[in-house]
Amino acid sequence: MRTYLRLLWTFFRVSILGELAYRASFWLQIVESLIDLGTALAFVSVVFSYTRVLNGWSADELLTLIGVYFLIGGAINMIIMPGMNRLIEQVRQGTLDYVLTRPEDAQLLVSIQQIDMWKLLDVLLGMALLVGAMLWHGSLPGPLQLLAFALTLLAGAVIIYSFVLFLATLSFWYVRMENILVIFESMYEAGRWPVDIYPGWLRAILTFVVPVAFAVTVPAEALTARLTWLVLAGTLLLAALALLASRLFWRFAIRYYSGASA
């Protein structure tokens, strides 16, 4: 475990060193994130000028949800997406061979090999929103709620990671997989709203086909005290199963992989 954390830190440092050469992109990312956030908040404020609760979610609770959306989205775009996009590229070009020859676990290496550190801004913005929503609400969540939030947040991240890894692993068989990841990114945007406002078929897609519900709605439910024990247990179980399944699939795929270089 210590080695893995050290590896993650090394990759992060390399990415910082690489990015510091382009300081202008820091400002661009700030503006981009703020535009994104402003759009979301403006839309929500218009919606809540016409109603006091949206399907049981009050304005401050919805702010919590948007906070989780930015937090998780930022984390996905910072670590998971860049690495997976690169993995697909490596499979196509045959450079995955070099990763496989390294002594550390290949799945871990491809998962953290590329970090887009500017997306840390979205994570921070998301946290700021969460704090703001709590202050607005006027009371802090209890320790049990915080624990449930931390657990579901982790579980949501694990589910999304497993899902994206599964998609990226498919590139061992199908070469043009980068498009699939784009689909995932656009589906993620539906997570800006609690999934219970969507009609049944769409909710089912967002829960089980593209697991956005687990990543955003469930942690937000934990923080706003509407999570049942059953959903909590189910989410944790699903996260464990997803991680296991994606791991097995990766092992299977690696055995199939024969290399394309030379």
């Binding site: 919606v47 109603t51 949206l54 656009s186 709203w193 406002i197 769409l202």
Partner: peptide
């Protein structure tokens, strides 16, 4: 398809609430 589906869902929920 997703953009309109989200908008319709959000505003329909508002309409039903009101």
């Amino acid at each position: 398809a997703l953009g309109p589906a989200v908008s319709i869902s959000v505003w329909s929920t508002v309409a039903r609430n009101e």
